[in-house]
Design a protein around this nucleic acid. Structure first.
Lengths: 159, 159
DNA sequence: TTACTGTTGATTCTCAGTATCAAATTCATT
DNA sequence: AATGAATTTGATACTGAGAATCAACAGTAA
């Protein structure tokens, strides 16, 4: 219990900073921190893992019926530009977004059977990526890596 | 000159095997090696690097006016299933395909300024990916990795 | 030939995401 | 508070990739 509470508190603190960063970003760009953006941010931040714009739109509608879907798309783009959200693309035709601020960088391991995704990191891979880019005269600014396979439950089912 | 000729010959031999593999694949699935599929295969194979379905459609039209765009989409899917083509997704909304048979596996390093892409591989990264999946109980069946950055020409221009 | 299965191209449809635009909101100045 | 400029919003229309549909059209096998 104590631990749980602590974690929630921790997440809450991060949320405040992320909100703050969003606010700062908007101010820097002379944009406004409107009530719609606040609501969308809050709902987005409450999500565990990734959401599609459409899903988020449905969720925000429950809080505020009047919010339009275009605004959700626009706000996600803003959050992405502000470095608070990250686009993830599982190449199924839908772009998803996940909270990114204060998160460790990670990539995705996806089960092709059940669709579950696991967040993974390997600093050694990151290092090698840098190196590889360097060898080709590139300055690396980012990467996307998706590992596809079958999870322990699903790899039993087939074959 | 000699070398060039040799290379062309080599490519030609690979082409024959790829065509053969396509044929075999179709036979195995009780599908037919139609003239349209042959044309689309040939044009696709003559391309250096990647093409979008739409581009390929335009190109095949020049060889055979009557070929429909749906057939191009369908055939690319077949080639992909047959392991002769590979989908590449630079996340700009268009899926591209590249010849794959007899090719070494590779990933892509993309310049965000001029758009050029370089094919890269690092067996050490491949190894670590396997390892990483394994650690999470996954059987790895494939991956996609895109490194984004600025090439030597373009990284000078900014800053 | 006939019956059967797979293929094609034209067309329509779907669906994510974007552009448009008038109305509403907010901000800065007076 | 009032004015005017700039931003934002939501509804709606639009775009463009790709898939579904379907009648006409081949091969294939009896």
């Amino acid at each position: 219990m104590k631990i749980k509470k602590f974690i929630i508190k921790g997440k809450d603190i991060i949320m405040q900073s992320a909100r703050e960063q969003f606010f700062q970003y908007l101010a820097r760009k002379k944009l406004r921190f409107t009530s719609q953006r606040a609501i969308i941010f809050d709902v987005f931040w409450s999500v565990d893992g990734h959401v599609s714009p459409e899903e988020l739109y449905r969720m925000t509608k429950e809080k505020d019926r009047s919010i339009g879907q275009a605004t959700v798309y626009r706000t996600l783009k803003l959050l992405s530009d502000a470095g608070i959200a990250r686009e993830v693309d599982f190449s199924d035709g839908v772009t998803r977004y996940e909270p990114y601020y204060g998160q460790k960088h990670h990539d995705h391991l996806i089960c092709q059977e059940c669709g579950q995704s696991v967040e993974v990191v390997d600093p050694r891979i990151e290092k090698l990526q840098e190196e590889l880019a360097w060898q080709h005269g590139f300055t690396l600014s980012g990467h996307s890596m998706y590992l596809y396979g079958y999870c322990s439950q699903c790899s039993g089912k087939q074959a």
